[in-house]
Design a protein around this nucleic acid. Sequence first.
DNA 1: AATCAACACAACCGCCACCAC
DNA 2: GGTGGTGGCGGTTGTGTTGAT
Length: 285
Amino acid sequence: MGRPPCCDKISVKKGPWTPEEDIILVSYIQQNGPGNWRAIPTSTGLLRCSKSCRLRWTNYLRPGIKRGSFTEHEEKMIIHLQALLGNRWAAIASYLPERTDNDIKNYWNTHLKKKLAKLGGHEHGITSSRHQSITKGQWERRLQTNIHQAKQALSDALSLDKSDNTNSSKKSSETIPVVQNSATYASSTENIARLLENWTKKSPNSSSQSTTTTTYSTSFNNSISSPSDGAISTTPEAILDNQMPLSLLEKWLLDDAVVQGQDGDFMDMGLMGETTADFRTILQF
DNA sequence: AATCAACACAACCGCCACCAC
DNA sequence: GGTGGTGGCGGTTGTGTTGAT
């Protein structure tokens, strides 16, 4: 038998969230912090499943979420992180702190998959439709067999990025379709999210936010905002804790010397499910 | 102006991992 | 070790919007 539903489905409301519901949810989280989602429906009177509350928060109301079109750089990062990690959207999202896993997943499914298919079964050989049926165990094996291709893909992307940097903003406006600002409602939720901006800085509970994306977002932004204070760590722990900006991770992946003679550095660490051996394989290629 | 297809994205569903008991 | 509860994740669906005819 399957496990019982997370909440009483009879009294649960479904469908789009109203601004009023958003305000109730945000108010609760302002006071109590994110987490303990099960308590939210009973505490707030919201006729929503706890899962629905969590999703609404993490995908829409959480501060720091960037909406609108993806930049060319973001697009390339998604393509090549997907090549490295597979359809592990939460892991990919941890390197794009302003984007949610849902956003990235949607963008992949609606834009990038078609785009790559149009390019003719793209050479990277790791992404695309055949990837969808691959199980987690298969992913681990495939990661090892395709690591050469993956690294080459990332290397190519980086060289492209660097050559494109000078005119990337112009090109992105030409190549990336502008996402229409479809919802007047969106602006109201943006206002709600804006209300939370200060709260994230002062709330004692903000440090206990449960999503990896949020955790990374904080450290990522700190690193970006103070690049000269030496706060950026390039230790394996920093990578595994998602505290390393992608640019440094890229350097790690591409700089063979970094991992030479560091056996033991990765013991007893896990990166979102990868085994220590998997991660060592990536770095030692 | 009306209709329809394509698109974009928010939300739901089911499965799984982890944890407490 | 077994069981149940909870949160998290990825796949999929539903719905509103836009563009073409």
